[in-house]
């Protein structure tokens, strides 16, 4: 569905990705998407549309029923340890370890990501870059606001220096200022060549920074638009148009929502 004259190799790729749960609920249905170097792909959709399930498939938290989730060409479910060397992840509500300081959290997660050569100065630079105040570096995370924790999360992703980044509703619950800062950072990472796949409910932010916007409905990719295609288009109307049919046909039940989100 993507048009590009000179295309880099895909860093994140879903190939006919399907997930059917034991209770018969189809969370993903033949999903195909590609994110290349220097691209941001925003997945839009209601609760239970399959956004988080897609990210979970890339992280091997679920085993797809069929199809593949490839990270840098490596099957994330067949060779998860190898695939995860090439991806960083920032979740919706970054909590980290509340008894650790920001520095200690960074040190742990960055080492876990396979980077053990960093020194304190590197951590300080990363935390400065994401906009965390110096006096917070050695404070325990339990005293941090959500925005500050989110900054730590993105600092970890920056330090891991993986070519691909997965963001699961990263701006959810952030105040407008923190959301804007976060968006700026994501755009910077894209400019550095990272391939970013993000799930979001934030239509305006998606339109602002995404190179591709995919709309998921009931586990299916029902629309995919490039930045150019979205120029002059009211994305909100487009989104509602796609979602309306879904909302009428299949209202999301509690259990369904739990399984899919």
């Amino acid at each position: 569905m993507q048009n590009s004259t000179i295309q880099a190799a895909p860093l994140l790729e879903a190939v006919e990705l399907t997930k059917v749960y034991e209770d018969g609920v189809k969370a993903l249905n033949n999903l195909n998407l590609v994110v290349r170097e220097g691209e941001i792909y925003a997945m839009l959709g209601g609760n239970g549309a399959g956004k988080t399930t897609t990210i979970n498939a890339f992280l091997d938290f679920i085993q797809p029923t069929s199809g593949k989730a490839l990270i840098n060409g490596i099957d994330a479910n067949a060779l998860p340890l190898e695939a995860k060397k090439h991806v960083a992840f920032v979740s919706e509500n970054v909590q980290l370890y509340p008894n650790f300081t920001a520095m200690q959290n960074l040190d742990f997660f960055v080492r876990l990501g396979g980077k053990s050569h960093y020194e304190r100065l590197d951590y300080e630079r990363a935390l400065h870059r994401v906009g965390l105040q110096s006096e917070a570096f050695d404070r325990k995370l339990k005293d941090f606001s959500k925005g500050m924790r989110q900054k730590c999360g993105i600092a970890i992703a920056i330090l891991k220096d993986a070519p691909a980044i997965l963001l699961d509703e990263p701006t959810s619950g952030l105040d407008p200022k923190a959301g804007k800062e976060f968006t700026r950072l994501v755009a910077e990472l894209r400019d550095e060549g990272k391939a970013i796949l993000m799930s979001t409910h934030d239509i305006f932010r998606a339109k602002e920074i995404a190179d591709y916007v995919g709309i998921l409905n009931n586990g299916e990719l029902v629309a995919e638009k490039t930045k150019a295609e979205l120029e002059g288009v009211n994305l909100e109307e487009l989104y509602v148009e796609y979602m309306a049919g879904y909302m009428d046909e299949a209202p999301v039940s509690g259990s369904l929502s739990n399984n899919l989100s």
Partner: peptide, 14 residues
Amino acid sequence: NRGTLKLCFANPLS
């Protein structure tokens, strides 16, 4: 519940 499990396993950790 804290989300640290997901964050840990987003890394090459068995």
